[in-house]
Design a protein around this nucleic acid. Sequence first.
DNA 1: CTCCGTGGGATCGATTTTGTCCCGACAACA
DNA 2: TGTTGTCGGGACAAAATCGATCCCACGGAG
Lengths: 345, 345
Amino acid sequence: MNPIQVLHQIAPEIKAIIEQRYAVLRAIYYKGPIGRRALAQELHSPERLIRNELEFLSELGYVIKSSSGVTLSLGGERILPLLWEYIRQMRGLSDLEQELTCRLNLKAVIVVPGNSDQDPLVKQDLAKTAVRYLRNCLKDGDILAVSGGTTLAEVAKSCGLDGHKRRVIVVPARGGLGEDVELQANTIAAKLAQGLGGSYRLLHAPDNVEPQLVDTILQEPSIREVVSLCRRAHVLLHGIGTAEEMAKRRGLHDEYVMQLIVRGAVGEAFGYYFNEQGEVVYSTASVGIRMEDLAKIPLIIGVGGGKSKAWALLSVIRLGYCDVCITDEGAARKVIQILKSKEEM
Amino acid sequence: MNPIQVLHQIAPEIKAIIEQRYAVLRAIYYKGPIGRRALAQELHSPERLIRNELEFLSELGYVIKSSSGVTLSLGGERILPLLWEYIRQMRGLSDLEQELTCRLNLKAVIVVPGNSDQDPLVKQDLAKTAVRYLRNCLKDGDILAVSGGTTLAEVAKSCGLDGHKRRVIVVPARGGLGEDVELQANTIAAKLAQGLGGSYRLLHAPDNVEPQLVDTILQEPSIREVVSLCRRAHVLLHGIGTAEEMAKRRGLHDEYVMQLIVRGAVGEAFGYYFNEQGEVVYSTASVGIRMEDLAKIPLIIGVGGGKSKAWALLSVIRLGYCDVCITDEGAARKVIQILKSKEEM
DNA sequence: CTCCGTGGGATCGATTTTGTCCCGACAACA
DNA sequence: TGTTGTCGGGACAAAATCGATCCCACGGAG
């Protein structure tokens, strides 16, 4: 038996201690210099408890207190990833990954501890992990296509320059959508390109166009070129969302939303809506990437977390239009649960 | 970094928890059904604390309470060796073993957690470990020579039959000594033979004889035969003691003891007294094994623990008359400390 | 300058833990 | 069969810890 398992069998209370301590460290890491009170609110813990924790961590030299709040020390930053790996082992996430990889027939699954629905910081972990994965798999000369959305925006935000420049081209996989500029594929492509050290192209077109207009728009050379690049992408990175949420963000009329629900749409990815079986039940006409282009893309990475997105994940993955899935513990466990309950039926 | 090290760096209080819990489990293991109060006294802990610990362990199913006291459950017995190994890792005993093996130029060193001087149960661990080692290295037909002493007596006591009979012959390496029958090499040889499933011979001769009488005694065929077996032994298992202690047990006159001290004797093994440099400074004439026989014995195992025996261990090991050393943490750390302080000089 | 958020110190019930009894039960023993 | 010693469990006051707030001096931002 694994020594760590032994430990937790003989002293289960350690689990709580570690999780607590990790949560505090991570919050400090992400929230920069932060005060005791704000931290308590962030972690939904009583202030006094946080205070004890901080004193402890301060004595151990993992955090340093300043007038503007507490910050991670060098030691703290060093130990955080180690602790992260420990939490993964403790919660058996490696096993979870393996099980999912096998059951869903994917190339790889990466599961981040936590649940994005409950803890917004988990989304940042997810994003960081996606960036790390991306950095590892991109080669010079690659074309990377990215979609929009809150998850991808987070990915772009956490993608800082790491010194190693990659000669990649980042292109948006779809057109513009909604009002928030931060969530646009264009913005995300630009930020990612900057972080990776490559270049980017913009797609100056709306995501939602009348079907008969698609061809007309494609006549425009600047658009045509980007779309062409996009369809020859080596890597596609896209967010996975629930159908309902995405429909709302797209500003679809209520009648369309109703129609989606009636057809059983649960998941969305790059403009396509999937039902539980992984069938496309609706799609918005677009100048961007299309279903038939996906088969030619060597590596498709789907990112999405939160227990609420389990159905969406499952639906998107089902037909194999996703090679690598980066998700979180909440979603992963729910997916397993769904799969198991289906087996029993 | 080792995940366990990470754990202890971020949450040092775990160490205390684990040690405590281990101590309780081990005490229950050795002291059979034992009451809450007796256990508290045994472990020098307040009764209430032990009570909490017991309630905990009982809930986890590692101990079962009965009217005669608490006992280890099956699960408890299963987890104890795992926990033992964990403690070893936690305290870095494997590294300690390696360092000692290398520095002292031995075949192997085994270090058991704890300090025999402070905790008598550690001596039992030491004994159990010695038995385990012995079981692994003995082959059918081997001759095993054993010395006397408290440590070896403990080894013999904890050597129960394990189902697997070994056709070995156990012979005492030295003659009778002192008054306590349990500490005699003869008794120990008999018990060990029984535990290992082999046979034994007895050496009916005193350990301390006038030099001029040795040859006369050896004329006696029964003695001669045993001594001959002994000198052809494949494995020699002997205890390592401090010179002072052994001299007292031998009942040497004060003047002799003084002489030993003057000559710098610190360690004793099978009748030979060694000084710090590992030189023999005194020896009791005996019909048993002699210094010159040792070179022909393929495997010499020395057993001895307790911080107080560090000097003795070092002196006995120095000249290489010991291939494998089984000791405890207290002694091992002290030995390292001594070696390091000598280097600095 | 003001103002907001910070760490540190302090207060004060509420709660939990600790130290220490006592009790009935049971097994060993006389 | 009665005595004795130890067992687990119950009980309870003392002590420590916790939880929820205060206040205060300070320091950086506006």
